[in-house]
Amino acid sequence: MLKIAVISDIHANLPALKTVLNDIENRRADQVYCLGDLVDFAPWPNEVIDLIRQNRIPTLMGNHDERIAFDLPVVPLLKHGPFETQCRMAAIDFTRNAITKENKAFLATLPRHIQLTFGFSDRDVRLLLVHASPRSIDEYIYVDHDGEEVASMMAEKNADVLVMGHTHQSYIRAIPGPTVKTAINCGSVGRSKEADRLATYLLITVADSKTAFRPDSLQFELIKVDYKIEETIGAIRQSPIPDFYADFLSVGEVVK
Rank of each mutant, 00 (worst) to 15 (best):
L2E: 14
I4N: 03
A5G: 12
I7E: 07
I10F: 06
I10K: 06
I10L: 05
H11S: 08
H11V: 09
H11W: 09
N13L: 06
K18E: 15
K18T: 15
T19F: 04
N22C: 14
Y33K: 03
Y33T: 03
L35E: 04
L38Y: 07
L38V: 07
L38F: 07
V39S: 04
A42W: 04
E47W: 08
E47A: 13
V48A: 08
L51N: 09
I52A: 09
R56H: 14
T59F: 05
H64D: 01
H64Q: 06
R67K: 13
R67N: 02
R67Y: 00
I68E: 02
P73E: 12
P76S: 10
K79H: 10
K79W: 08
P82G: 02
F83S: 12
F83P: 00
I92V: 13
D93P: 00
D93K: 12
F94W: 03
F94L: 04
I99A: 05
A105C: 01
R112Y: 10
H113K: 11
H113W: 07
L116M: 14
G119C: 13
G119I: 11
F120M: 13
F120K: 13
F120D: 10
L129Q: 03
V130T: 14
A132N: 05
S133V: 00
S133K: 00
R135N: 14
I137M: 09
I137T: 11
Y140E: 06
Y142S: 02
H145R: 06
D146A: 04
G147L: 11
G147V: 11
E149I: 11
V150I: 15
A151Y: 12
M153I: 04
M154H: 05
A155D: 15
A159G: 04
A159M: 10
D160Y: 11
D160P: 09
V161M: 05
V161A: 03
L162I: 02
M164C: 05
H168M: 07
H168Q: 12
Q169A: 03
Y171A: 00
Y171H: 01
R173N: 00
I175D: 01
I175L: 04
P176V: 02
P176L: 01
P176K: 01
K181W: 07
K181D: 03
T182N: 01
A183V: 01
C186Q: 03
S188C: 08
V189P: 09
S192C: 09
E194G: 01
L198M: 13
V206R: 11
A207G: 14
S209V: 13
K210E: 14
S217D: 11
Q219T: 13
E221P: 00
I223C: 10
I223N: 04
K224R: 15
V225F: 05
D226P: 00
D226I: 10
Y227F: 15
K228E: 13
E230A: 05
E231L: 08
A235Q: 06
Q238G: 01
Q238Y: 00
P240S: 03
P242C: 10
P242R: 09
G252A: 08
G252H: 09
E253Y: 04
E253W: 01
V255Q: 12
K256W: 07
